[in-house]
Amino acid sequence: METPLLQVRDLEKRYGSRVGCIGVSFDLWPGEVLAIVGESGSGKTTLLSCISARLEPTAGSVSYAMRDGVTRNLATLTEAERRLLMRTDWGFVHQNPADGLRMRVSAGANVGERLMAVGQRHYGTLRETAQDWLGRVEIAGSRIDDRPTEFSGGMRQRLQIARNLVTHPRLVFMDEPTGGLDVSVQARVLDLLRGLVADLGLSVIIVTHDLAVARLLSQRMIVMKEGRVVEEGLTDRVLDDPHHPYTQLLVASIPES
């Protein structure tokens, strides 16, 4: 049997007396897309931050299957090992692209920087690969020397996606990746993400309050309320036949088209 790519056990994060998340356990399998949904303040972003080693949990554990086949508790990694993991085997797509890009360097340099983190040094190869990836995220190759400050919000988000995926990470974290975009731009970005995730066989954990996004991208879903998981299961099952009253309320709040 395959080993889970990520194993989360009894994860808890407290801010003094306030609970960010508590008692969260799940496995993520290779090639699986998991959505974490809930209203603002439900604890989903805190959970994502703990899972992605951006925030130290109060209790519990997060273990990751390294490329050498050894599953390691993230708490035992050195800071250098954790940084290398974030720059190579993991990707993180922020809601605000400016948080995931270097705004004062060119689009090509943003993509090339990730390649350099995995040892690529040949300028011609860096530029050629960057140009290829700009094309894959529907940015004209002629914009390779333009800075992200000259791009629209949708283009910045697509550039951030290219920057994250160029090293072929096995796990990508996404925090409301379409939350700040216009509806028409959201559709293009979501369609792009769905295609790239399928083509590359990525494992993804996506945080969103938008159940339509969760249905489009994920196979499995976790529903959070007040820091706890109240329901989980296959995405279509959870959305078509919600069991918990809170999930039923979320589903009922989706505007009818």
Rank of each mutant, 00 (worst) to 15 (best):
T3Y: 02
P4N: 02
Q7R: 14
R9M: 00
D10F: 00
L11Y: 04
E12S: 12
S17E: 14
V19N: 03
V24L: 01
S25K: 02
S25N: 08
L28D: 02
P30L: 00
G31H: 05
V33L: 00
A35F: 12
A35R: 07
E39K: 07
S40G: 13
S40A: 12
G43S: 13
K44N: 04
T45C: 09
T46S: 08
S49M: 11
R54T: 09
R54F: 11
T58Q: 01
G60F: 06
Y64W: 14
Y64C: 00
R67Q: 15
V70L: 14
V70I: 01
R72F: 05
N73C: 07
L74C: 01
A75M: 10
T76Y: 00
L77Q: 01
E79F: 00
A80Q: 12
E81M: 01
R82I: 03
R82Y: 00
L84K: 15
L85Q: 06
M86W: 09
V93W: 04
N96R: 09
N96W: 06
N96L: 11
A98Y: 09
R102T: 10
M103H: 07
M103L: 11
R104L: 15
A107L: 05
V111K: 03
G112F: 08
R114I: 03
M116Q: 15
A117Q: 13
V118C: 08
Q120L: 15
Q120W: 12
Q120D: 12
R121C: 08
L126R: 07
L126F: 11
A130I: 08
G135M: 03
E138M: 11
R143D: 10
D145P: 01
D146T: 14
R147E: 09
P148A: 15
Q157Y: 14
Q157H: 11
R158F: 07
L159E: 03
Q160N: 15
Q160Y: 07
A162Y: 04
R163Y: 13
L165Q: 02
V166I: 10
H168T: 14
F173T: 04
F173E: 03
D175G: 02
D175S: 08
E176K: 07
E176Y: 05
G179V: 13
G179P: 05
G180L: 11
L181A: 08
D182R: 11
V183G: 09
R188L: 12
L190P: 04
D191P: 07
R194L: 04
R194C: 09
G195E: 13
S203F: 08
V207L: 10
D210I: 06
A214V: 06
R215K: 13
L216Q: 15
L216F: 11
S218H: 06
Q219K: 11
R220V: 00
M221G: 07
G227S: 10
G227F: 00
V229K: 05
E232R: 12
E232A: 04
T235L: 01
D236G: 01
D236R: 13
D236H: 05
V238Y: 05
L239E: 06
D241W: 06
P242F: 14
P245M: 08
Y246C: 14
Y246Q: 13
T247G: 13
T247D: 08
T247L: 11
Q248W: 13
L250G: 04
V251N: 11
S253L: 10
